[in-house]
Amino acid sequence: MSFDYLPYMRENHLPHMWCPGCGIGVVVKSVIRSFDELGWEQKDIAFVSGIGCTSRAPGYLNVNTLHTTHGRAISFATGIKMHRPDKHVVVISGDGDATAIGGNHLIHAARRNIDITVIVNNNNIYGMTGGQYSPTTPLGAKAATAPYGNLEPSFDLAKLLIGAGASYVARGHVGNGRQLAKFIKDGFAHNGFSFIEVVSNCHTQFGRRNKMADPMNMVKWISDRATPLKKFDEMSDSEQEKHFPVGVLHKDESRPEYTDTYSNLISSLQDKA
């Protein structure tokens, strides 16, 4: 029997606002499957986002949903998680939202190792505002604000997050939903800051400007470059440049989780009283 997504959806708010073939759908499906497989109750989940196409996702899900300001989702999520450490807090964000305007919150939440999962739908572009280049737009790629090709080098988000202290970092892509769901589920289950980068397609804003207006072409472009970590590590530098590694890129279960640490502080002060 096929999986029934509808109990997790706010059916009366469909149809969704995304373009046909948008990669966000694959991400949302993976999120729902992961909620289900972990047996998380809908009332115990806060699903938080910033602003952008990706950030519209929470509105369609029947959990506690918070659509905040551009870039700031993680800070709101931090407030929720600190006040209710017993609940599940998940953030979904676009690459511009999470890593440009929201980059500061992203690295600091990772550093604290607070138990929030951040999923970044990395479509290499500012989708909602009309295709301006983002911190993950490849060098040379065309964008509304890079008509002669992007002049700026891009972030490697996974490396950035590992450097910042995230204790779970994985990268998947929209060409392999099953694998992505596994990473997301793992990230949810991990007690600490987890980060899942999803290499995704915005054929409308990125593809159209870069000879991939058809979503299938763009997903193929992504899938062809996605390489399991082990295989990627064995590649030559020039081969690596044409690919990106997917998999669980970092996992450290030894780091204390921030709200656990804070709870310990509270109990130690209570003991003294």
Binding site: L66, R72, F76, G79, I80, M82, R84, N104, H105
Partner: peptide, 19 residues
């Protein structure tokens, strides 16, 4: 928090969770 923007965000998030 890492800045005042984040502090205001965290305050509203906590408030919505009942704080």
């Amino acid at each position: 928090m890492e800045d005042e923007i984040g502090a205001m965000g965290a305050v509203i998030g906590a408030s919505l969770a009942g704080a």
